[in-house]
């Protein structure tokens, strides 16, 4: 079963890049500003500074949102070609619009952020895809579960995978699993990540073919296997 996802790139007019990304019942808007000048105190002499702001759909950001910011920041910094912009700042704003559950929110935020960075044309060393998986008591791995499926499952995991070698960049697990079960989930997540990378690719092709940069008809000429 394919992952239910959609995106609208260049969604915001004032940002350098933005993406309105929907994943299942979760939707987020991610916007990127920069590389621009930032706080002097946050400047690095050898790389750019990435600032992540995560806004929940209701209420003030709490400690949980700060944690999400940390996770996203650590992952994105991994792929950013940050050495190209010393002393600069890249601002990444993520606005939650609605969410199914916290795992999917993290997944959607990360994928949305990567798409917004692509839209902004920020140089990166690779791409990331986040995938939520859950392992049910019956031994079935569900990719992008609904809140109900999550509740009924034994364990839930978020994997952040990298496009070049399908290596694990980050992993967050809740609920116990045996080693064999864990491996099964990881393998399924790698399969699902391929689908997300394919989605990135087709969306970028769409975006640039409408600008006349790439002829959408000759998509096969640019065929490239992300994994």
């Amino acid at each position: 079963m394919s992952i239910e996802q959609s995106v609208q790139l260049n969604f915001l007019s004032r940002a350098d890049g933005s993406a309105y990304y929907c994943l299942g019942n979760t939707s987020v808007v991610a916007s990127v500003t920069g590389p621009t000048s930032g706080r002097v105190s946050a400047r690095h002499h050898n790389k750019c500074n990435l600032e992540v702001q995560f806004c929940p759909c209701n209420g003030q950001p709490t400690i949980e949102e700060r944690d999400v910011e940390c996770i996203i920041g650590e992952c994105i910094e991994e792929i950013l070609a940050s050495h190209l912009h010393p002393r600069a700042t890249i601002l990444l704003n993520i606005q939650e619009l609605q969410s199914e559950h916290e795992h999917q929110l993290l997944t959607a935020s990360l994928n949305g952020a990567v798409m917004a960075l692509m839209d902004a044309g920020v140089q990166m060393q690779g791409l990331l895809a986040a995938v939520t998986c859950c392992y049910t008591h019956a031994g079935v791995v569900i990719v992008e579960p609904t809140a109900l499926e999550l509740q009924e499952s034994k364990s839930s995991l978020v994997f952040v995978l990298e496009s070049d070698t399908a290596n694990v960049v980050a992993c967050y697990q809740q609920g116990r699993l045996s080693v064999a079960e864990y491996t099964a989930v990881l393998n399924r997540a790698i399969e699902a990540a391929k689908e997300v990378f394919q989605f990135y690719r087709s969306e970028m092709l769409k975006r640039y073919s409408s600008h006349g940069c790439i002829d959408g008809q000759n998509e096969a000429d640019y065929d490239y296997d992300p994994l």
């Binding site: 790389k47 650590e74 910094e77 991994e78 694990v168 960049v169 697990q173 116990r176 045996s178």
Partner: peptide, 28 residues
């Protein structure tokens, strides 16, 4: 010996291609 949680954070490094990504075999 059951896996209760695996937490892998991304890293913060410059200029090296994805230094802290690990393959699934490594996780085992």
């Amino acid at each position: 010996g059951d896996v209760c949680s695996i937490r892998k954070t991304g890293g913060r490094q410059v200029g090296v291609l994805l230094p802290s990504a690990v393959s699934s075999g490594k996780v085992q």
